[in-house]
Design a binder for these strands. Structure first.
Lengths: 192, 192
DNA sequence: CCCTAATTCTAATTATCATTAGAAAAATGC
DNA sequence: GCATTTTTCTAATGATAATTAGAATTAGGG
């Protein structure tokens, strides 16, 4: 029962890579197959359709990040304060974004071009992640760790943009997520 | 000689819309045609290929923004200082991004999934735009308008990310570019 | 109105693609 | 080794797409 799971995972990995590089419609089942060392028909032993693969890649792309961020935040000692929690969250988000760059990028790049039906199913997770950050930032502000700002949700959107955009310019392997996180937090959170 | 130009423009507009919504490979010449009130074959009276349309859309998407930003910066009175120049640039970038959202978004969303040949031709403009901002920021820092930062090019990338990401969350028509620009500049440039 | 050039259309053509059917071949347990 | 299950393959099938050829239509100037 293990070989099968590993093959399935291998297909997902190469699929994520292809979706990142070529987009939803530009990725051919045949490409995924050959990059996974098999023929197109064999893919259908593991997945019902190209859409199913795509949706699973999207899902993984978000879940990996969300889980890691939650875990990183929970690992910050309570004594460290909200500013440290924020920075841990940013660091984890960035780290996962690049450690699983094909999944995250497949998600971020293609979400807006996904068939609506799939988009709707993904929305639940997306919103949950957004709310997680909203709460994180609100808690920080309420604790005085952020200078009072007119609009916290703007800050959150700017932050998402800055973080997600790193996928488009940071060279693969050149990622130093903690340094990047430190600098980004300094830019966006400190007005001392 | 005018009808023809207007039709060509109409095709480009609908093409930008389709490319934004469905991506490079997901956009069918037939879709562009019907959304432009014609049959697919007629498109080829105006363009040599789907690729040519796509490339032109990308080009327009960048040029509109670049030109507007340059113009906006040039219009800032010299007496206003570098901080005002920066904010004018941000405001113009955001304004064009949303005023011509289909073109900008087609560019930003699909660039990473564009055939390499096209990507390479676009790189020249892209790099020029990047350098324009690099100079703008460097001048501001040298003039003391930005607190000395470890890394100006990080700041620039964070800024691009925050600005470009607005295309993914600002509701169409709900854009208030000057307010958004003010808030973004406050977040990223002020450490007073 | 007529001639010419500009514009758009219908009908191929040729390729590519997702998916299925069903046969081969590997692996597993006995 | 053999029987069974799992995995992969070859070979269709049926759709859909980009592009072309060439005919039909439209528009403007005389």
């Amino acid at each position: 029962m293990l070989k099968s799971d590993r093959t399935r995972q291998r297909i997902l990995n190469t699929a994520a890579q292809e979706f990142r590089k070529r987009g939803y419609a530009g990725t051919k089942v045949n490409d995924i197959a050959f990059a996974s060392n098999m023929r197109a028909a064999s893919i259908y032993y593991y997945f019902e359709s190209k859409d199913q693969i795509f949706e699973e890649v999207l899902e993984i792309g978000l879940k990996l990040v969300f889980d890691a961020v939650r875990k990183a935040v929970d690992a910050v000692p309570a004594s460290s304060g909200h500013r440290a929690r924020l920075q841990a969250a940013v660091e984890a988000h960035l780290r996962m974004l690049h450690e699983y760059g094909d999944y995250s990028s497949a998600n971020i790049r293609n979400f807006g071009q996904t068939p609506e039906e799939i988009q709707l199913r993904q929305m639940e997770q997306r919103n949950a992640y957004g709310e997680y950050w909203r709460d994180l930032l609100a808690a920080a502000r309420d604790a005085g760790a952020l200078q009072d700002r007119a609009n916290l949700s703007l800050l959150r959107m700017f932050l998402f943009g800055a973080m997600n955009w790193t996928l488009e310019w940071v060279k693969p392997g050149k990622m130093n997520s903690s340094e990047l996180a430190r600098e980004l937090c300094r830019t966006m959170f400190d007005e001392s």
